[in-house]
Design a protein around this nucleic acid. Structure first.
Lengths: 342, 342
DNA sequence: TTCTTGTATTGAAACGCTTCAATTTATCGA
DNA sequence: TCGATAAATTGAAGCGTTTCAATACAAGAA
């Protein structure tokens, strides 16, 4: 159990030292224009002398509002999400808000925990990059009066705001690009399919293959994670197959998987990329370009996703009566590099 | 200005609906063993029915403690820090705490802002990966009664706890490795030197060169940031020099710089790595191995830094009277890959 | 039935701050 | 100097919850 600490100076201590009322100290903190300069000085000196830091719990309890936004991301170690968080934070600072981050690590329990923590803290609003379908979470939060925006996943605009990228189009783009190289035997690497993003990317790629005027196939190699390690494992398995069974192109559900595949192929086996197998990832994280084989990728505008989420959330907070929920979808972009060149 | 929202149900509403006192609802939330099962059920139903979420500001104001820890990192988009944050978070969860993250983006003002925000929120404690010398910040926080641990930088144990890696040793290791390859014309790329980590890495490398039994030199190319972009810019400048002026080895202050250098050399010029110039980075981020030339690096145990910081902080919080400040320093490790092979 | 003891519940007080109507002070014009 | 007005300050009330001493209730023993 935490041991007792000496009590911190309160606004009352400041008032006493400065010889003014509680209300005047509060005015110095919140409405200094209403206070004579001489009084401001006196109070400010008392604050410094005492090392007073106001208690936000008390402020918030009385004032009933917060300039802090909570954000829950799936995996802070994935550059896609850290760039997204950076974008959000810069936009929040512009609007006079601060973002505090929680990391769910793809774990529904942790996500739930952060969502509850932020709700108890009565943050101004919550931005969620959800582990799974967020419909129920969002509906519950909104019913409770909590502002919420979903990012990197679309939900019905009747329920709440969301910002995402058209992953179906992204998957199609990736597959079309591979087909345009003359590749016929495509493999999609990614999972779990509970992740709507993954399912959409696969669906888009599958459609491209189906509508391709020529013969081509696409298989699916499921993974339990979207990590470098998972990619490496898949790469090892593929490399261990007879060459005649290799795919001639791999569409990885994200860049981390693709990087892992590259590692397995280039370091531990004789698979040539793109000679034997072309590889394309998804996200276009900062390190895709500097990969051992510069990685082609489908670019998602991560920073823009983050900043747009903040803009929508702030609008919802500050203009609740006129705010209309929106589902914003950005288009992904093909970025071609060595891993899929001919 | 935020518009008024319908008031959220309070503990009083729950009490009224369940036909019990405020104190009983509080007991159901906090000490359910003190309440008859039948009463617990009644109250729990009322809570669900009303969608009650207690107000943490009120709880904290009265109870005076928090199970939340604040953490301020330098750059969430740098995998070193995101792995460090992940390590911290896992350790915190083990101890029954939650970590909320703030990102200073190498900006003193932002750091200060998050520190103040967390202090106002009366978090249990603050972990800081500081922008610059944290001595004053830590002393101020501790004088105010705020628990604090510094990570990735050492401060005097008389002031507070810190966890870091011996960057001087790391710098020496890197330079010794380069010298052992027969490289004679070393270049250190990194800055600003306000960053003690950078200064220590340079100092260690400089010492290795000085004590080398043979002729070798080390120059310093200052950068204003530790980013891929900054590394690219330096790489371009070096590549534009006459070949006779190229260094034969580069020690980059971190892996992001090294990745940028690799990009400039391999994509845009004729510099061969390691043939013309060997390149070693620092941090051993997850992508170092998958870089276009697998990058040698000095490994810092990022996750361990994070988890140790939490352990020290929790100890300081929960055992304040017996807690002794410590300065824990981990030893870095050389990881050799293709970028410095012979 | 009464008394004792253990269990369950109650409700007043207070955490630290903001807010705003009431009061005080200062300034200006007649 | 007096009256009116504007500026500055005051201080009571209350935000939502926890805490714990007081009270009520239940069960068992004499």
């Amino acid at each position: 159990m935490p041991t007792a600490k000496k009590p911190r100076p309160s606004i009352q201590d400041v008032a006493r030292l400065a010889g003014v009322s509680l209300g005047t100290v509060s005015n110095v903190l919140n409405n200094p224009d209403r206070v004579r300069a001489e009084t401001v000085l006196r109070v400010t000196k008392a604050i410094e002398q005492l090392g007073f830091v106001r208690n936000d719990a008390a402020r918030q309890l009385k004032a009933g509002r917060s300039k802090t936004l909570g954000m829950v991301v799936l995996d802070i170690a994935n550059p896609f999400f850290s760039v997204l968080a950076r974008g959000a934070e810069d936009a929040a600072a512009q609007e006079g808000y601060s973002i505090i981050l929680g990391n769910s690590s793809d774990d529904l329990r942790r996500e739930s925990r952060y969502v509850s923590l932020f709700d108890e803290q009565r943050v101004g609003g919550i931005i969620i990059s959800p582990v799974d379908a967020a419909t129920e979470t969002v509906a519950t939060l909104r019913a409770r009066g909590t502002n919420v925006v979903v990012v990197d996943r679309h939900i019905d605009a009747a329920i709440g705001c969301s910002i995402s990228v058209d992953d179906f189009a992204g998957g199609r783009l990736a597959a079309e690009h591979l087909l345009s190289l003359g590749r016929k035997k495509l493999l999609f690497v990614g999972g779990p399919l509970d992740f709507q993003q993954v399912a959409d990317r696969l669906a888009g790629a599958t459609q491209a293959v189906k509508t391709f005027e020529g013969t081509a196939t696409i298989e699916h190699f499921k993974t339990t994670a979207l990590s470098v390690l998972a990619g490496r494992e898949v790469g090892d398995k593929i490399a261990a197959l007879p060459k005649s069974e290799w795919p001639d192109a791999i569409f990885a559900a994200n860049d981390l998987l693709a990087v892992g595949l590259l590692q397995a192929f280039m370091f531990k086996s004789q698979v040539q990329v793109p000679g034997d197998i072309a590889v394309i990832g998804y996200d276009d994280i900062a390190f895709a370009e500097a990969a051992i084989v510069p990685l082609s990728s489908i670019r998602q505008p991560a920073a823009l996703l983050g900043s747009t989420a903040v803009e929508l959330l702030v609008e919802e907070i500050e203009s609740a009566s006129s705010h209309k929920h929106r589902q914003i979808t950005y288009q992904p972009e093909l970025v071609v590099r060595a891993s899929t060149s001919n």
